[in-house]
Amino acid sequence: MWDYTDKVMEHFHNPRNQGAITEKQEGEEIVTGEVGSIACGDALKLHLKIDEATKTIKDARFQTFGCASAIASSSALTELLKGRKVEEALKLTNKEIAESLGGLPEEKMHCSVMGQEALEAAIYTYKGIPLDNHEEDEGNLICRCFGVSDTKIKRIIRENNLTTAEQVTNYVKAGGGCSSCLPDIDDLLEEITTEKEKSIEVATTIATADRSSTAQTTKTLTNIQKITLIQQVIDREIRPVLAEDGGDLELFDIEGDLVKVILKGACNGCVSSTETLKIAIEATLKDRVLPTLTVESV
């Protein structure tokens, strides 16, 4: 028998906010997000009522087909959502859902992932982003039994700091069917570990790079001087370091003190490495050009 927390059992026996949302007032919108399938053994239809003016979730309800932890996760999710701004809600992770229930057994973590995905689906619908264009659908299919792509597996590995294929199965089911994709999952885990190590390494190199090649300046810069200097620092100090690991960077635009860059090659596509690199690049530019500069990856 599963070792469920009292909170899970309490939500299972007395679920909050079950059912559909059908009625709305002027200035409100109702959206739904559906994930899972009857084949997988769990499915969730999340209903959100959003206040148009404040972009706030006024009501959240659920309909769930699934086990006790799926029902409890759905119930907990609706509680977490009520009163949140849409943009804030989008940041909610599966981890928060599980934590609000006092934790879930490892094998049941996928129930919290289902909650996060239904939420994302509902908000994407609200924003008019077609679900078909969801980035995860563009990835390569790794687990054929449960239809899980490498993009999704990588995201869940990063967000939950997973280290074993077994954990990946517990979180997104991938590998839990015929288990023929387990070696592929191991490869993805390896890839992310390497990625993390590399980005830390690169960031350290940039931060401690030899600055003798470019003159330090403290005087007020004209716009053209600023742009030239930024381009110079990027070309001479940052790009060579990135190139060593197969990455590259392009200066896209400068708006006031905001430097927009495009990460390329090996730098692209990894949330954690993007973040680390951004900080390192920003630190270099602040140091070399202007302390007020900020960097954004576009």
Binding site: G41, D42, C67, A70, G176, G177
Partner: peptide
């Protein structure tokens, strides 16, 4: 509906049964 949810509901009434659902086995299938 899903078997594990039925079993845990029955368990509240001290009734013991079993299910062939994926969720009870831990095997996902």
């Amino acid at each position: 509906i899903e078997g594990e949810a039925i079993l845990l509901s029955l368990d509240q009434f001290d009734i013991c049964a079993s299910s062939g659902s994926a969720c009870t086995s831990g095997s996902l299938e």
